[in-house]
Nucleic acid binder design. Structure first.
Lengths: 165, 165
DNA sequence: TTTACTGCAAATATTTTGCAATATC
DNA sequence: GATATTGCAAAATATTTGCAGTAAA
């Protein structure tokens, strides 16, 4: 499995994975490393099934169950974050310690967009908890995007708006 | 349907509901008002099925489908917030404009606890978006609670003695 | 050799959809 | 009277579980 260039972030992720595996008496498998590597070359949000399909498409040999299992494992060792944006399946994305970001979600059309905010991030990092050790966070702002705002203004009450997705 | 005391917050919620219903050419139904009232007398997080069961238990006449439908409606008119804490069903809670709070979630045992933080809230309120009108937010901090931290320390891997730390 | 993991299939859990009956406007 | 909504049942989704075969330690 040739790994591209000097991807130190991937190397670090693999170390974290292996450390977790060792310290929990789990086993090193090709599937686990492959999923970590795949997430690092494919940024974005995926649900387990999408990830499974994409990996199959790229010719990797893996089962849906291993994807489910491994994603859960990666969340536990903080290499991935699980999101539940909308209705359907849980979405996973690589945890990138360097580029923390938030998500804003349009409640009308379901669009998810990432954003960053230094002040917010700073306030967040400073926050201290008692009897709790934080390891990750998810911050979602719900609202209406520009497009849907326009629609809303034009679409004065007349018909049923059964917008989907 | 006798409503307790001068619950101005409930009254306000019902006004919001009715305004939304009117402006979207929907219909006023007993079920919708009942669910709003129920949420106001039962603080906490519930999934649709739990809410359905609780309402049935209290002798209310309602169907599971109306609960699903109405909760979705309440999210749209910002009277409720939908959370996806862990694995299972989506949880709903009443949106209380006065007492915004955050959630911290133990990734080991799944326990959800609310917390507040004025600085964080202030940073949040100040945040301005371009091409997006925010209406609500959810902020989840994932980590390990005290109990699970203890367990983790006790449960050292049996075979190899990697204890020292 | 032991047993964790994979991977398939079946079972569960959650939400959505179709539709007849009902209630709102 | 027109049609949005209810409520039931069935279908569609998403995830978990059981188990035999495989592979890591």
């Amino acid at each position: 499995m040739p790994i591209a260039k000097s991807d130190s972030e991937l190397q670090h992720a693999l170390s974290t994975l292996n450390a977790y595996i060792d310290s929990h008496n789990l086993r090193h498998t090709a599937e686990r490393e492959e999923i970590v590597a795949f997430l690092h070359t494919h940024p974005g949000h995926f649900d387990a099934d999408e990830l499974f399909a994409m990996m199959k498409d790229e010719g990797l040999s893996i089962s849906r169950m291993s994807v489910y299992n491994t994603l859960e494992l990666l969340v536990k060792c903080q290499l991935a974050v699980r999101h539940h944006f909308g209705g359907g399946a849980a979405k996973y994305e690589k945890q990138s310690p360097s580029g923390q970001h938030f998500h804003r979600i349009c409640t009308q059309c379901g669009a998810v967009k990432e954003f960053t905010d230094k002040k917010l991030l700073r306030a967040l990092m400073k926050k201290e908890f008692t009897a709790f050790t934080p390891s990750a966070f998810s911050f979602y702002v719900y609202g209406t995007c520009k497009n849907c705002m326009k629609k809303q203004q034009n679409n004065q009450p007349t018909k049923t708006n059964k917008d989907k997705s």
